[in-house]
Amino acid sequence: MIELTDAELVKQCLEGDRAAFGVLVDRYQKPVFNAALRIVGNGEDAADITQVVFLKAYERLRSYKPNYKFFSWLYRIAVNESINFAKARRQHEEIDDSIPAEDGPGGEETPEAVEAIVEEALQALSLEHRLVLILCHLQELSYREAGYVLDLPEKTVKSRLFTARKVLKDVLIRKGRLDERRTTR
């Protein structure tokens, strides 16, 4: 079966085909959910945000211009929703030193444990640093796409990404979380 492009699916949606929107949901619910999850740090809130993102996307489908990829447009909505949510909840805007220090060298870390460490460190970053890491690193958007989503020049995205990585590195080092056994796959 031929897989329709996002643009074709959007066109079908606008012609009244709800099933076409279902295909877009299938295609992007996971990355949108993950982006929201990393921003707000809570699965239930991320699910709620994801739902709102798709419903708003459906509502605004006519305003979508195919100059950018559909998922970049979707991410833009997702990031705005997540930011609004995070701000409303007054989440961490500054580096949070509340992460407990490591107890000391231990045995082999499970993937889940490493994920938890990174997740914890991410949540300690400022929102703007967290966002750029999520989009460029975890969601693998290009600098240009991330710039579109964040409404920033490409150059700013790059410099912010550099700073964000450094801050994250410093948080991990300060807490004794950055060592060889966690950085090898």
Binding site: L37, P111, I117, R165, L178, T183
Partner: peptide, 14 residues
């Protein structure tokens, strides 16, 4: 190393 740790974060299922 920091980037590698970030790379170990898996995508959660919706």
């Amino acid at each position: 190393r920091t980037a590698r740790m970030l790379g170990r974060v898996r995508q959660a299922d919706a």
